[in-house]
Design a protein around this nucleic acid. Structure first.
Lengths: 137, 137
DNA sequence: GACTATCTACTACATGACGTAGTACTATGC
DNA sequence: GCATAGTACTACGTCATGTAGTAGATAGTC
């Protein structure tokens, strides 16, 4: 039995191409449509106007900002990658962590430790802090 | 600037009605379409066949299982709520926690503590465990 | 000026997911 | 036979996303 797959990375709550575009803007921005298109087209065929439409829609959604420069628009991300992800995770966790159980927390810690053991230490520090703060109130 | 809203609860990766149906099956299952329909219809107008379709689709997706009983089907959830949520969160976090940073972790801990301070202790325990395990290897 | 390249605005289509729900058919009970 | 109950089948609308062509305007080059 397969649980429906959550998408990962910036694609989380965006379409695949949207996520790819956003990632590109984070890495290279401020950028024009042409630049993003060049970058994407290096790997596959995609029409210029497809890229342009997606960027325009992302701007409508507020994830990208744009300013005119000559005849073109220059796009930048509306928030840094870290900030975006913090918000995404925040929203997700706020809805889910009520009644978190041990297997869930266990998995969370494992995911963290798998990447970088320093994260575990960081998390432990944060928790100590919070518990200290709690003990004082 | 508003980050697109993540949906919360069982609705996370399902539609609204799908999530509601799944929740109903968890609470009352094994159930027939009629029972789920009665429960949902208590609060608003909804056609029997709408409920039936949604349940049928959830079964196709593998989230519900069904067995014939007389002319009807009896539906059950394919996995318990906890298990489902663990999987959902697992998939989400696996894609996101690479390069987790301090603000993100801070928020995570805060979300946890806001609900139930016991969770913080539980998490601290789990971390200690993992760090001990790490120190032994 | 003509031509070419570049860019956006405008437009449109397809697909899939989801919610919605009626109709037809069948089986069962009275 | 009639009424009820249940599924199969069917269909439609909306929305999000990916896809991309065309038209028109602008700028640069010859």
């Amino acid at each position: 039995m397969q649980v429906p797959k959550q998408r990962s990375g910036p694609k989380q709550i965006l379409g695949d191409l949207e996520g790819e575009v956003l990632e590109c803007v984070w890495q290279r921005g401020p950028v024009s449509v042409r630049e993003v298109h060049s970058h994407l087209a290096a790997r596959r065929e995609i029409a210029y106007t497809t890229v342009m439409t997606v960027m325009s829609r992302l701007a409508e959604k507020g994830l990208l900002q744009r300013r005119p420069e000559g005849r073109a628009f220059i796009y930048s991300a509306s928030m840094p990658r870290d900030e975006y992800w913090t918000e995404v995770v925040k929203n997700f966790l706020d809805g889910v962590l009520q009644g978190a159980n041990r297997p869930l927390l266990s998995h969370f810690v494992e995911s963290l430790a798998a990447d970088d053991a320093a994260q575990l230490d960081l998390l432990a520090d944060i928790i100590e802090e919070k518990r200290r703060k709690r003990a004082c109130s």
